[in-house]
Each structure stands twice: as C-alpha cells, then as structure tokens.
Design a protein around this nucleic acid. Sequence first.
RNA 1: GGGCUUGUAGCUCAGGUGGUUAGAGCGCUACACUGAUAAUGUAGAGGUCCGUGGUUCGAGUCCACGCAGGCCCA
Length: 1146
Amino acid sequence: MIYKEYKNLDYARLADEVLDHWKRTHAFEQSVSLREGKPTFTFYEGPPSANGMPGIHHVMARTIKDIFCRYKTLQGFQVDRKGGWDTHGLPIELQVEKELGITKDDIGKTISVEEYNQKCRETVMRFTDRWNDLTEKMGYWVDLEHPYVTYENNYIESVWSLLKKLYDKGLLYKGYTIQPFSPKAGTGLSSHELNMPGTYRDVRDTTIVAQFKVKPNGKSGFLFFDSQDADVYILAWTTTPWTLPANSALTVGANIDYVLVKTLNPYTHRIVHVVLAKNLVGRWLSEKAKVEPEKSLAAFEAYLPTDKVIPWSLVSEFKGQHLEGIEYEQLMPYVQPAPSEGKPFRVILGDFVTTEDGTGVVHTSPTFGADDFRVSQQNGIPAIMVKDETGKDVPIVDRHGQFVAEITDYAGRYVKEEYYSDEERADPEFKPTDVLIAIQLKEENKAFRVEKYEHPYPHCWRTDKPILYYPLDSWFIKTTAVKDRLVELNKTINWQPESTGTGRFGNWLENLVDWNLSRSRFWGTPLPIWRSEPTPGVQQAEVCIGSVEELCGYVWEALASDVLTDEQRAKNEAFLAAHAAGTFDLHRPYSDEIYFVSEDGQLMQREPDLIDVWFDSGAMPYAQWHYPFENQEVFERSFPADFISEGVDQTRGWFFTLHAIAGMLFDSVAFKNVVSTGLVLDKNGNKMSKRLGNGIDPFDTLGTYGADATRWYMITNAEPWDNLKFNIDGIAEVQRRFFGTLTNTYNFFALYANLDGYTIEQFDRIPREQLPELDRWILSKLNTLIKEVTEQFDGYNPTKAGRLVQDFVNDQLSNWYVRLCRRRFWAGELSTDKRAAYQTLQHCLAAVAQLMSPIAPFYADWLYQNLTERVREESIAENTPFKHESVHFTDWATADESWIDTDLETSMALAQQISSMVHGLRKGHKLKVRQPLSRLLIPVLTPDTRRQIEHVAPIIQSEVNVKAVEFVDDASGILTKKVKPNFKALGPKFGKQMKDVAAAITGMNGDQLADLERTQQIELAGFTITLADVEILTEDIPGWVVAADGPLTVALDVNVTDELRREGIARDVVNRIQNLRKDQQFEVTDKIRIELERNNDLLTAAVEANKAYIQQEVQAVQLDLVTGLNGSAVDIEMDEFVLKVKIERV
RNA sequence: GGGCUUGUAGCUCAGGUGGUUAGAGCGCUACACUGAUAAUGUAGAGGUCCGUGGUUCGAGUCCACGCAGGCCCA
C-alpha cells in the first residue's frame, strides 16, 4: 500500500501519534534550526503564572501565538520563542496565605519572611507540569526547556539594571499616592482589605456646600453678565469638610449642563450668583420658589429671614467645558502651594464627575482623593503641602489624623470625630472639626448649605475607626515625562484590531499618569534603592543599584567603614559568602539585610518596597536574556518583537509595560504587531468561572477531540478579538464537516491511487495545456486560495484564513472537483487523463496540508506525511519540496498567477449555479436525476456569458443529466425580457426624482426596451435613460419550465420521450445491480454475469437499447434476458415493475 | 460614572466605499444518491438586521440618543 487508508479516524489519537513523532525527531527544534541564518521573526511570550491550572482560554490565546510563529517559520524566518513564567505578585501571596491559614499580619511573627517567600517560590511553580503537558498536547511550539523565570537572580538583576537606567535618567522618583490609610493603626490598607465584609458602614457626616468665589476675568466674564454688583460663586459639595483647607481645584464634567442661579445665601441673606449642575438645582432649591429674573430683586426684598423657602431665578445655562480655566479665590487660605508647582484654584475637567448627588462640581484636593490626585496631576494642579522638620513636603493632616500647626485655627485637631476618645466626645462643649469648619464658613458667607448626610464609608478592619484617603510614600516612574513620545511610538504599531490601539490603548496613553511602582509586599522583585534616614540639616544619601556586582561593591565598602553594628556586619558578610557560593538570593528578607554606608558615613538601608509585578513582565525582552550582562547580540537581534498576542485585558498591563519600558529606555516600540484577543465565554455568553461551574477543562476537550479540531473551531468561529462563545458541539461540527470531508477526500485519493499503484509524479507533470478543464479550474482556485490565505495571515487575520481553506475544501475540492471527477478515477487504465486527475488532487491536498498547518498542526502534518512519505527519498535526492520530513519545515507556497484564470472560475461558478437551479426544477417536477432529459435552454444576453457557459456545458450536462445545453438569444424571438432600474447608476443622475424614474423604467414595454437597446438611450416621461441605467434580464420563456436567479434564467425541457424513458430505466437497472454487487461484497474489480427475467416490455426494451452501457457500468461480461429465472434470483422493487435478477461472479 | 467593544435566522457567523429580493454552516423538514457509504448531494421552511429618531430618492450599512451583554478603568 502506498497511501495509508483510514476508517473511523480518531483525531485525538492521530494528534498523540504525531506528537510522539515530533518528540522523537525534535521537530520543534528542527523547525528553528532549519532557518539558521535566515532573517529572524521575533515573538515574545507573555508569561503566564503557573500557580493555577490552565483553562480553555489559554488554549485560545496560545493558538493565536502559535499560528503566526508557524506561519512565519514556513515563510522562511527563524522564529525563536522562549517560554516564560510570571512568578511574583499578590495572587501567589494570597494563595500561600490561604493554604497556610495565615494573614499578612502573621508574616514576620508566626512565619518568617524567609519561610514565607520559600513557600511562595514552591507554590508558584506547582502546576508547571500540567502547563507543559497542555502546551504539548495543544501543539503550541515554544521553548519550554529554557524558559525565563521572573524570580531568578539573573532576571531580577536585569530588572534592576533597567530601574537604574530609569533612575539615572531622573525618571524614578519618590512621591506619594492616595491610598486608604488607617491613622489609628498607622498603616495603609490594600484594596482587598477594604473589600472585607463589614468595612463599609453607614455614617452621618456633616456635609457642606461651599461657595467658591469666582475671580472676574476674561474666562469667567460670561458669568458676570447679569450679576450687577453681586458676587459669583461656584458651589461644590463635600462629605469631608476637613479636606477644604487642602482644596486646590474644582472639577466639572465637560458635557454636563450647568446653570447660573441668582438667589440669597441662607445664612448671610446676601444676594449671590451661584453655579451648579442643572439637574441638581432641585436638590438645593425649591421649584416653588423659582421666580422670573426680572422679578427676582423684588422677591429678594420681600424675603424675610424667617421664611422657609428662598426665592431664586435662573440666569443662564452652559456646558461644563465653558467653565474650564475659570479662577477662584482660595476658600480657606491657611497654606499656599509653592508657585513653582503649577497654577492652583482653577476649574478643570474630569470624567468622574456625576450629577447623581451634590452640585455637579467636585471639590478637588490632590492630597486626599485618588481621583483628585489623578486629575490634578493631569492638569498641573499643585497640592497644598507643608514642610516637616526635615524639609520634606507633607500633607496638612499628619499620620495621626491631626491638622498640622500651619492650619492655625484647627492645629492639632483630629479631622474625624471618631479619633477622639469617648470621654472627649462626651463633653457637652465638644464639637467635631467638620462642624467647626461649617460654622466658620457660614459666618464668612462661604457656605451655601450645611446638612447632615448619611452615606456608607469605609472603616479599618483592625481599629473599627473610619479610614482616610491619604497620601502615602511611593516610588514612581515618570511616564508622564515621555508621554508624547509613547503616543508617537504607538502610532507605528500595527494593532489587531485597530480599535484597541487607537481607542483603548491610545486613550490610556493620552491620560497617562506616573507609574506607581511601589508595592508593600513580600514576594516580588525588591526595589534596588538604598537610602539613609532623613536627618535635619543633612543631605539624605540615596543610591540605586543596577547589578549584583555593584551591590557587592557597596557591601564591601560598608564593611570597610566602621559605621555598621556587629549584626549588620554579620549580615553583609553572610551575603558575600552566599554570593561567593552562588547560593545568594536577591529577594526579601536577604536584600533588606544588606547595609550600605554613604561617603559621609550615613547608614543606608533598602527602601522596603517591592516593585509592581507588571514591571517584571514588561522587562522580559531584556531580562529573558539576562541583558545587558549576557547575550547582547541575541537581544539586539530579537528587539523589538515582530509579534505579540495577549488578551485585551492586558492593554493596561503587559502591553503597556512593554511599551513604556521600551519607549523610555530604548526610544523604541517593544512590538511591531499585536493581536489582542477577546474572552472565552461559555456557550451562553457567560463568563467562565469556578463558581458557576461552567468552565471547560482543556485536557478533556483535547483528549476527546484532539488539538486540531479544537484549534480550528476556536479560530474559525469568531475573530480572535471578539469574545468566543465556546460550545463543545461546535468542535464536533468542525470535526465532522471540515476534517471529516478532508479525510474523506484523502481516503478517496488513497483508495484509487493504491489500486493503480500511483505514486506522486514529481518529475513528470502533465503540462497545463493538456489538463482537462476541471483540473485547470481547481488549480486556478487553489492558487487564488493560496494568494488570499497568504494575505489574511499577513494581515494577522487567522479567522479569515481558516474560513477560506475550509470553504475551498468543502465546496470546491470535495463537493465539486472530486464528485465530478469520480469517473476519471474508476476508469480502467492509468491513462493521461487519470494521471492528470491524480496529480491535480494530490497537488491540492498537499497544498491544503500546508495552508492549514499553522492552525491544525498535527492533522496537517499527518496529511502531508501520508501523501509524501513514499517520495521522500527521491525528493531528498532531487531536492524537491517534499524532501522535508514535516510540513512545518516546508517553504510556504507562493501563488502562481499564471495558473489563475478568473474567466474559468467565473464559468465554473455559472455551472455550479445553473446546476443548482436545474436540480431545483427537477425536484419541483419530481424528475429524479437518473432520468435523462433532452435539453436545457439558457437565454443569454451577451456573447460573453454564452461563451462562458458553453465552456462548461458538458459539466452541466453530466451533473444534471441532460443531453444538450442550448442557448437562446434575441434572434430566437422567444425571449421575454425584463428591465430593472440600476439604482447605483441612476442615483447620482436623478437623485430626488428617483421614484418617478424607477417607475418609468419598470413600466417600459417591449418596444421601448428594444429601442433602448438599439439606440443606447431613450426618452421616458421626460427623462433620458441610457443602457447603463438599467439592468436587462430574462425572466420567462413561454411554454418552458423555468427558474431564475438574479441575471440567470434556465429553462428545462421536461418532456420524457420513450427513448429517454428507456435510458432512465437502464440507469435504474445499473443502480440496482451495483447495489447487489455491493450487498454480495464483490470487489470493485470483479467481473460478473447477469440474468434478468424478461417480465416487462418496458424493461426488455430498455435493456436491449442500452445493453452495452449497462454491461460496461456494472462490469458484466454477459447480460441475458431470460424467462423462468431459477431460485437464487432476487426480486427488486422498481418504480413500475419488479426486477427479477441474478448475478454471479465470473 | 468613563473608555473600548458586541448586538443580523433557533444556534455560530458573513455582509469593501449606502442601491431596493440580507447570505452561509449547523439544527429542523422533505427528498435524492448508494463504487467517497458510520459518507454524500439537493431543496424547503425560518429574519421588527437590538430600539427610537435623523441624514438621504434610497439605511443592515452613515449620524445622534437609548437598551442589553462584555472587557478595562474609577
């Protein structure tokens, strides 16, 4: 047997076998080494965290990655792909804490940092075996032998060197960020501590609507138009009055509608003009008290201080964006910001402003609100800060929650009343700070409303006291300094889909804030910055370490001084010893226990922060190669990446950190092409989750269906960036419909090629001009396919590529080419025509194997090997494309344009369409295909159409079993033509008159149409219509059975003559005898002898008239009509009689 | 609340620059085929193109506002 034949192919086992073969032959390594010296195509693997089990979405994400790496390999590039593991971060810490039953508080108490980190290190790589298993089973080719691991010293060292570069460029600085902070516990709280049950509780706070007095100038001029001599105020509501002394801006929403209202201050009864959101006027003023502007003065005069409702009137209305830039007077001028820090006390725009409550204006204090901080940073608004004893900027509230001395009236007061002791609060004279502030503002005509308000507020889970949002020290990377360049560089990246790049990522860059690098954790890359304690009058010492060597240098220097204690000295020595032994570790607690001494003799310790794990992963282009300490050339060759792909949720994660680091340090993009992928949802469109139990186990899926159908389904069902509704039935469908059809096609080829002993003829191809029409057609289609698939892969659209291959295999190759060519394969001798059929089909199959190989790597290799195994040796000897042992080593086919014959493709498409229409007609008239009919009539309006159909007429004839295809044209006189308006052509000419024109055209009679055709144009209802303005088609042929589809019409002669009838019966007889042969399990090559009972005139006539035909079809050496057939004959029901027949093998 | 994204047949998806009859596969129904046969082919039924308004002679397609789902951010 030349070609293996398969019954009931098990696709999962097929993949296992191919995988075994790959492992034995080191196929992946070969696919890379084969391209040694070729141009590189660089791919970066976004590292997964191995502390959890892989899910089906990982199969999706990695399939995308694999496809393009394989494709580019086929195209001749060398594609190194190094695997990697992300090993640091909070999820791992949480998992360890859960398993050990501890909390963060226990670290350093019941468990040492050393033990804790050791546990993290073990935990994080726990599932690597399962990951590696999945990687192999799904056919993802990536280097798992030499992965980068973010916790390794070398990796960390590279990260440190990058940080040092940033530090040297002045891009690394210590600042603050607003975080939940518990003054009573003296500690910051993480977001998940804030999410613990019971932390949010309803409290009744004193709230103030403050009046911020607008400075009259050009920008605010429109507010003063009607103010006469009254002042204009902007109203802002706050639930934390204690933050008002720190106010430095007001934030409004650009698209929110605001109004200017004239009214009286309820406490001072002075006339005021106030600005607030239109929707919220009713929140503060009674609709009943509204008066017309011209009556307002009278209303104000009539108002008595005892009246409940205060009259008001509407002055003007405007969008928030008109308020931008307006300046106002500082509300509580205790502390002024440094003039160099930016311009304070302005109205700015922010996207977080709502009109759900308050006034639609947000009092903004950069030191006490996260939104405030961000929007202030973006708008150059300075914070209100004071200097502490060491000269450092600190907020106006200290870490105990008390106002600093500079807030003279309130110095030393706690900002939250809950921070006072119960005794203090019990004093009848006691007033909370917020209340005192409210009283002061009322008196100064700065409060528009003071009221108690109940709302949920977070509390510290340790102390039960309310938390503050408070600025805490943090290390930042000054990404804002390079924002413009990052935006610029982003424009050169090819994003797939484009909207992620321009929209989600682009917007993110536009609104960039500095990257907060600090994390107060234990398991992660330590921040390599050592500092001395701040001391008044002494320059603080600070150093950033960029390598282990540098680190050792400082350790040596420290040991050489006499500043260290014995214990510190011992720790330093321990580190050096571990370094010498190669057992050192840069993690905590070891890096915390390394002590430096500055030149002026100050002790320096490491800043205790760890860095954001996203910096780890963003550093992978450099750190995976231990750059710049090793592999300089490798790095240079593989930077930036040509291609990366991850989930769209990585936009602000990995995509950003890669981009930011590359932009800041190398003034380059980190990746040139990026495919951001959507989510994998369950079949109902819900997110997969453990809780819902709707997750899919990828191992089950791969075990049942194999990787190929799974991958093919995921890729062809939805474009990668759309969410995929994962339905396991879809895989079964792909397997049946696509892989099943392709396997059948291969089996068909194998069956006959084996019978004929046909092996691929590489050196004796039948020249194109000698190939039959069908062969030239399918080869034209194939080359078109190659062209289009290449385009799609080049454009990073695997979905369209896969669908193209699938449609070719199903509709063109299997359902048309093979079906129509079956006879050629049965024919006796290995004639030229038969060889042409083999060559053509073999060529298509081999090409398909390659085209599909990036998506379905196992199956494609299996198909390729089955086809080409037998010619491997001669291919190697003669250096032909089949010399490669695996399809993944081959060179991507280029479309040969000379084979593409669009005219022929159009012809065949017509044949397919016409056949389909005739099938429909036959069906409608209950004329089965086995019954031959005499002729098919096709009206043609152009010689071109006629030629194209004539070309394929024989194919149509045999496909629909008619004796002749005839054409009718104008000359025949039997055509009924119909005319339709061509709207596309008419539109630009007639525009609004379209309805009349269309009616006129539709109403044309035969003579008018004939005129139009003769003279090219006609006057109709006052319009000049040209031939190009209409579509002419034929719709009917009187006296015929017709079908029409678009411009095509076919008419079928359904008259069955006696002769046709006899032929139909003969075909039926053939059909029944074939069935008998099969029932009796005769071989295809067996010859037979037939006896038929002469029991019906119709049968007799039919058999006698078509004897030779019947004999040939059923391989009968003898066919006799007899009377009195004996016992072994069988009876078969025919349409009109019973066929009594006996066959026997010769 | 903001940014991005999706919404077309029971299901999964196609539908360049607007053109009047909106397509495919699966599923369903019926039929055919039986030398690709646990295959295959053909036909049929099935649609408020998420809604509302607008632009236009003409909107699944363009615009605005909504609704619903998703992701990220707050």
